[in-house]
Design a protein around this nucleic acid. Structure first.
Length: 428
RNA sequence: GUGGCCUUAGCUCAACCGGCAGAGCAGCGGACUGUGGAUCCGCAGGUUACGGGUUCGACCCCCGUAGGCCACCCCA
């Protein structure tokens, strides 16, 4: 009915929701900083080929979910809104020669991502992610550290029941052979395969393992496990990652069917789920190692690992669990006036308090005093400063709205009195 | 991208078989002309998502579109 609405799959974050998101963002930033990840920004859009090369032409993200921007002229390059942060961060790593920094380079990006997908609860066309990347360290210890960092984020956000799913998808040395084994196995059962799965057998056999089709359940259960087909180096790497996680006490579950949707992943792959909702379509977050990506985007061969955690889904779950979103603190004082028309006096006094660093709002609508106080009460202000005839003698009334008491205070002392009162308020 | 369910005031929801579109909450105002959260009273708020069709008559039945939700594909 309104003539304009937020575009499909996007939403306005009204102050209460924005406050909840801000809280998650600051948890993410402070946590990342403690682990040595430094925050950076990358553009909201890139040359389309950064995503096509980096994420993979054949992935759903690029094939059908990329938010492409219409070129402005015939000559302009093709751009797309970022569907995730990793490709852009790695592009920046290569562009700015970050291989000359002490390795690994640990970076974090917090912000909105865009995917042209069909919206649903917890699935939006503009959504927020906490992304972390460690580039330049091949070792398993950093894998375990970043998995633990993600897990830690959920704990600090207030979600207790997060399950870590862990897998290794091998590397260039062992994956081809495993894929061949898979193809042979599923090929033998060709007749039982649903059409979609038969097609995938050619394009991306790994994905068959991820199928939710009931017809596939038994086949998947009996399928050859990647664990048994890892090359020696990958197996050792995977074992070391698990040993580190065990030592840190991070609970995880091995999930041989966990396959990540993006082409660049190697070895370690992990996802975070709400316990009891594993295997459902809505992961809270996920990540993995991408030892070939830097080279793919024009850098020298450099290992890397990272994750992306979906903040909207955390917010959604927190809301469902009835965890109260911390709202912004109410103003300390509201300045009201006996003369509804005298907005000058109210504004002047409020401004004076703000200049002293205090949180003060003035009631500017020309309403009578009672209504002004009512509005102050409704926003839970602690104090009201009442301006009236006593201003002629340089005084105002300072009213404690919680206690219901008030006293005459010289305007010159008001800021100091309020600051002191605020302090005792917080401690009592 | 596929299939299904849904859409009435800012929010949550009523409206018999197709027969005058209503309530609570929120908002604004009055009771109360310099003293607040309570109470009472009032005001405002609608092309029943939008467009078409059937009918004497449509919130109600039919078609289309948009949006939301659910299950998929897939991901965060």
């Amino acid at each position: 009915m309104p003539p304009y609405r937020a575009p499909r799959g996007t939403r306005d974050l009204l102050p209460e929701v924005r406050a909840g998101l801000s809280r998650l963002e600051s948890i993410a930033r402070s946590l990342a900083a403690r682990y040595g990840y430094r925050e950076m920004e990358i553009p909201l859009f890139e040359q389309t080929s950064v995503f096509e090369r980096g994420i993979g032409e054949a992935t759903d993200v690029v094939e059908k979910e990329l938010f492409r921007l219409a070129p402005r002229t015939e000559e302009s390059e093709a751009w797309a809104l970022r569907p995730e942060a990793t490709a852009g961060v790695v592009r920046a790593y290569v562009q700015h020669g970050l291989h000359t920094w002490p390795q690994p380079v640990k970076l974090t990006v917090v912000g909105p991502m865009f995917r042209y997908d069909r919206p649903q609860a917890g699935r939006y066309r503009q959504f927020w992610q906490f992304d972390a990347e460690a580039i330049g360290d091949p070792g398993p210890a950093v894998d375990a550290e970043i998995v633990e960092l993600g897990y830690r984020f959920y704990v600090e956000a207030g979600l207790e029941d997060v399950q870590v799913l862990l897998n290794s998808i091998g590397d260039g040395a062992c994956r081809p052979a495993y894929l061949a084994t898979l193809k042979t196995y599923f090929g033998r059962h060709d007749a039982q395969l649903p059409d979609l799965e038969r097609r995938r057998l050619e394009t991306n056999p790994l994905r068959l393992l991820d199928s939710k089709d009931p017809a596939m359940t038994a086949l998947i259960a009996a399928a050859p496990k990647i664990f048994d087909h890892l090359c020696e180096a990958c197996a050792a790497h995977f074992a070391a990652v698990r040993a580190h996680l065990d030592a840190m006490g991070v609970p995880y579950r091995l999930e041989p069917t966990l396959v990540r949707g993006l082409d660049y992943y190697t070895r370690t792959a992990f996802e975070y789920y709400r316990r009891g909702a594993e295997g459902q379509q809505q992961a809270l977050g996920g990540g993995g190692r991408y030892d070939g990506l830097v080279e793919l985007l024009g850098g020298r061969p450099t290992p890397g690992i990272g994750f992306a955690l979906g903040l909207d889904r955390v917010l959604l779950w927190l809301d469902e669990s009835g965890v109260a979103a911390t709202s912004e603190p109410p103003p300390l004082a509201v300045v009201v006036g006996a003369d509804p028309a005298d907005t000058v006096a109210r504004l002047r006094v409020a401004s004076l308090l703000r200049a002293e660093g205090l949180s003060a709002r003035s009631e500017l609508a020309p309403r009578k005093l009672g209504r002004q106080l009512e509005a102050a009460s409704k926003e839970h202000a602690h104090f009201a400063v009442i301006i009236g005839d006593e201003l002629a003698d340089g005084n105002v009334q300072l009213k404690d709205l919680d206690a219901g008491t008030q006293r005459l205070v010289p305007l010159a002392d008001l800021a100091r009195e309020l600051a002191r009162a605020a302090k005792s308020h917080h401690h009592g």
